[in-house]
């Protein structure tokens, strides 16, 4: 896949998803701001729908595939886009999964055709769009060298644990472009976020739980389990010497923030590591103010740390 991606990713269809209009609003804001600052254009998918998150697949996996296929159909048929960028791991995962299932899973095609027809829109055909994550978008659209040139406030002194979560890397078969050697993303040791933040001057700590689970699927239905899983992550980050955890998914981010508070209130375990979206960190490195990238919308209050580092 080498390539015209720098050109291709200059203007892409943007699928924020439900979380980015609600609890993950800071991620939405900071993603758009970073895009502007880097000269990468986003055009929101017209009249999009929910991808089904982690829930609809448990009612019926093929309905989830339909939901994702409709988003891609909107992007290609209503807007003529060939690339959809989804910053949320859940949306990104589901669109990738739909693409895989439409190509490989028996019976999926028929169900998607049938619902699309009754819904009155053109059926999405596998291969019509490429789904990418915000990390791919910046990594290939600008690259580390391009980013370095635009950094005006280095993240020097920020010790970052990069947390990618589950949906960005697993299962492997829905990400055919990953694990293809140098320059591609790794599903066991993802590094795109590390690469970008290092280019912005941050120090990435050696963090062992990059792809551990935060229990996001059961964040409310099995809260004690989620709190335990999140505590593992927070404590490992602190033990690695991090002062901030960088996230790239609204569910992970909210899960970490929420269960950090819950651990404190319910189990009396206090952790001090701060939690920021990687786009918030990049935005500040590009000279945007903390407010502009929505730091005030986070539950995890990192103003003091950012002021100390001269970023806010």
């Amino acid at each position: 896949m080498t390539d015209n991606r720098a050109e291709k990713y200059k203007k892409v269809a943007y699928y924020p998803g439900c979380a980015l209009e609600g609890t993950g609003h800071a991620y939405n804001r900071s993603t758009k701001e970073v895009g502007k600052a880097l000269g990468l254009e986003l055009e929101e998918v017209k009249n999009w729908n929910c991808c089904g998150a982690m829930e609809v697949k448990n009612v019926d996996p093929k309905v989830q595939t339909y939901l994702s296929s409709r988003v891609m159909s909107q992007a290609v048929n209503e807007m003529g886009h060939s690339v959809v960028m989804a910053p949320c791991n859940g949306c990104y995962h589901n669109l990738k999964k739909a693409e895989f299932e439409l190509k490989n899973e028996e019976g999926t095609r028929e169900v998607v055709d049938r619902i699309s027809k009754k819904a009155g829109h053109k059926t999405y055909q596998a291969g019509e769009v490429e789904t990418i994550h915000a990390l791919d978008w910046i990594k290939h659209g600008i690259g580390e060298e391009g980013l370095k040139k635009k950094v005006s406030k280095s993240l020097k002194g920020m010790k970052v644990a990069n947390y990618y979560g589950c949906m960005y890397t697993r299962p492997r078969n829905i990400f055919p472009e990953k694990d293809k050697g140098p320059g591609t993303e790794s599903t066991s040791q993802p590094h795109f976020m590390d690469d970008l933040l290092a280019a912005a001057g941050a120090t990435n700590v050696d963090f062992p739980l990059k792809t551990a689970c935060c229990g996001g699927a059961h964040t409310l239905s099995d809260s004690d389990m989620s709190t335990k899983l999140v505590l593992n992550i927070l404590k490992a980050a602190e033990a690695s010497g991090a002062n901030v955890i960088a996230t790239e998914c609204p569910t992970c981010h909210t899960g970490l923030e929420m269960h950090q508070i819950r651990a404190e209130k319910r189990f009396g375990v206090k952790t001090n590591v701060k939690i920021l979206y990687f786009t918030q960190l990049l935005g500040m490195a590009l000279g945007l103010s903390a407010k502009k990238v929505g730091v005030h919308e986070n539950m995890s209050d990192s103003f003091e740390l950012l002021q100390k580092q001269g970023l806010a």
Partner: peptide
Amino acid sequence: SPSTIFDDVFSTQVIETGKIEDS
């Protein structure tokens, strides 16, 4: 299970309106 109830609450909203609202 609480998980099934959550799936149900969430999916019903998606199927009815196409989107969800967290709160």
